[in-house]
């Protein structure tokens, strides 16, 4: 019954028609240029292939081989600084409102004259995690942060890959086995002072519980000597977990742990287990408190991030209980939506 609006709506119709007419005219003009080209044929068009001949495939530049070096050059850095400090920060604040804890555990490294490159190893529940990490990682690491991203997901097309590289400084890696080329490249990045975010789980959680850690971060640390910072992110799974169509804004929490150093002679597997234990303890700290987590860590009884052993509805049931402890449990109650009766 919004009578006041009707005149303006009516008046906009002729304008729309004008625009449509203009569009038609433009289309006609383009057609006028293209038509002669079509008529002209090769070399104005793609050549046809003679029978029996095959065109050799050009090597794919997509996936793990996506070229991202340009994204770490000055112009891209400048663009990214604007994007991450502006829109990314705003969107993350709006969707996930992260509370950041444990930065004091990085204070000693921060104070050094030459801060070392770090490998951040967070658990992974959501695409938001990368944004949250970009916001949460403190300077001086934030401005030199590379995110290892699944090659098959982020770098499957040129546009997606370019955008990921530009805005998130994403670097393509294989989920399962880190190829020699990727790993050499990552080592080179660490050696030149770039810090990494690597999700040791290899991908987002499929069911809300964590997955076993794969050895990527431990392997790199073992090879480069870079310290691994275990990180626990709570809450993003229920904001925008895998399979959700649209995000449900809520709160999240990021807890940084003390840097872990590879010990002389320690195998990647054992170091990986240490990282997983550290993230598990941080998870306990985030959901309960520091002292509970410490005590359980000493007794080896921190609740596993991978959830209970059993399957089916009981696993889902346990997840709900688990989530109640964390930031997701504090979610603001959604405003009740009544149908608009005008």
């Amino acid at each position: 019954m919004k009578l006041n609006n009707t005149p303006s709506k009516l008046s906009s119709v002729p304008q729309l028609r004008k625009v449509a007419k203009l569009g038609d005219a433009a289309g006609a003009a383009v057609q006028a240029v293209l038509k002669p080209a079509k008529a002209l044929g090769f070399p104005y068009r793609k050549p046809s292939v003679p029978k029996g001949q095959t065109v050799p495939e050009t090597p794919s530049k997509l996936g793990a081989d996506f070229e991202t070096d340009w994204a770490r050059k000055a112009p891209a850095k400048a663009v990214r600084a604007i994007v991450t400090n502006g829109p990314v920060r705003a969107v993350i604040k709006l969707l996930a409102n992260p509370e950041i804890n444990g930065l004091d555990r990085l204070a000693d490294l921060e104070r050094l004259d030459k801060t070392p490159a770090l490998i951040f190893a967070p658990n992974h529940h959501s695409h938001l995690d990368t944004g949250v990490m970009i916001v949460a990682v403190p300077e001086p690491w934030r401005s030199k942060l590379v995110v290892a991203a699944a090659a098959d997901y982020f770098f499957d097309t040129k546009v997606k890959g370019t955008l990921a590289a530009l805005t998130l400084n994403a670097f393509p890696i294989d989920r399962e086995v880190t190829g020699r080329k990727s790993s050499d490249e990552l080592r080179r990045l660490l050696d030149t002072g770039w810090s990494l975010v690597i999700y040791p789980e290899g991908g987002r959680s499929p069911d809300g519980w964590g997955q076993d850690f794969k050895g990527g971060a431990a392997y790199l640390a073992n090879r480069t000597g870079a310290p691994v910072v275990p990180v626990f992110i709570d809450g993003t799974g229920s904001i925008y977990g895998k399979g959700m169509k649209k995000p449900k804004p809520g709160k999240s929490k990021v807890v940084f742990g003390s840097p872990l150093y590879p010990i002389e002679g320690e195998s990647t597997r054992r170091f990986n287990a240490r990282i997983e234990a550290a993230v598990t303890a941080l998870g306990d700290e985030a959901l309960t408190d520091y002292w509970t987590s410490k005590q359980r860590a000493a007794a080896g009884t921190n609740p596993k991030l991978t959830g209970p052993e059993y399957n089916g509805w009981r696993r889902q049931w346990a997840l709900a209980e688990h989530r109640k402890l964390g930031k997701a449990g504090q979610r603001r109650r959604q405003k009740r939506r009544w149908p608009d009766l005008g």
């Binding site: 444990g102 408190d289 002292w291």
Partner: peptide
């Protein structure tokens, strides 16, 4: 530190 405070004070 916040961790000790949060864990022990409450």
């Amino acid at each position: 530190g916040d961790r000790i405070y949060d864990a022990f004070h409450s």
